[in-house]
Write a protein that binds this DNA or RNA. Structure first.
Lengths: 127, 127
DNA sequence: CGGATTATTAACCATTGGGTTAAGTGTTTA
DNA sequence: TAAACACTTAACCCAATGGTTAATAATCCG
């Protein structure tokens, strides 16, 4: 698996924003129009518009205009690209040689997981 | 798998830069000191220093000072977090229901992969 | 037609990001 | 002790991000 850095730049930086991950989360369940997405977040319409453009640049979003509404769906391929890159490092946390070494070092500082009881991604809050 | 958005923000934005992915790539084979890493890229020392700090903030990097040298190793846990988030979307490109729908739409525009023969990540170039 | 709806573009602002050079801190060694 | 080495911090530049409000474009509908 040879990764294209240009794609990875766009995909990872697209995923770096919680609003954008939230948008993809909404689209997980099926297509949505822009106003539905916008309504789910507390930011302005233009701000949403910009986020959508970023997702489109990363080819993570497909837009289909029907009348005055824009129907949005996920485009999965770039996520596969990102996953492919990360796959290179699976050995580092999976159960094998490197994990042993990793474990030995991690056993010093307990509770290193920084898991502050915080929950899921930027899901819109109760409409 | 409940993802922590704070972690994901840091991890994905850390991975969004090709130099930082290149650094992790070097560390894939074992520990390196800062000057070794720096030598591999065409940017200044302080620039490398900043990249290292970003990787540390994302907890992707562990630093151990021995004398005047800083030994760097990968910290894998946050990569697992990122992979976990992406795993949510595996259904979209794997062989199943959604893939069918995806395929039907994608079959229109051929060669949508944007795979411009470009190779791997920001690997240092020939020392 | 005219108004409401959907969404984008334009212009602006503050913050962050990636880079630089110069200076500073700590460690090794001749 | 003084110089060389490893690395970071400080100060600065410029471009990109993420947000805003106001204006524009296109479509639907009474």
């Amino acid at each position: 698996m040879v990764n294209n850095p240009l794609i990875l730049n766009d995909v990872f930086s697209a995923l770096a924003d919680p609003t954008r991950r939230g948008i993809l989360g909404m689209l997980h369940d099926g297509e949505r129009i822009v106003s539905e997405v916008a309504q789910a977040f507390k930011i302005s319409g233009p701000a949403i518009s910009k986020h959508l453009r970023v997702l489109e640049r990363a080819n993570l979003l497909r837009r289909e205009k029907r009348g005055r509404e824009h129907y949005l769906t996920i485009e999965a391929a770039p996520l596969a690209e990102a996953t492919g890159w990360l796959e290179q490092y699976r050995a580092f946390w999976d159960n094998n040689l490197d994990a042993l070494d990793s474990f030995l070092q991690e056993s010093s500082n307990t509770n290193h997981q920084t898991n502050q009881d915080h929950d899921d991604d930027s899901k819109p809050a109760e409409a």
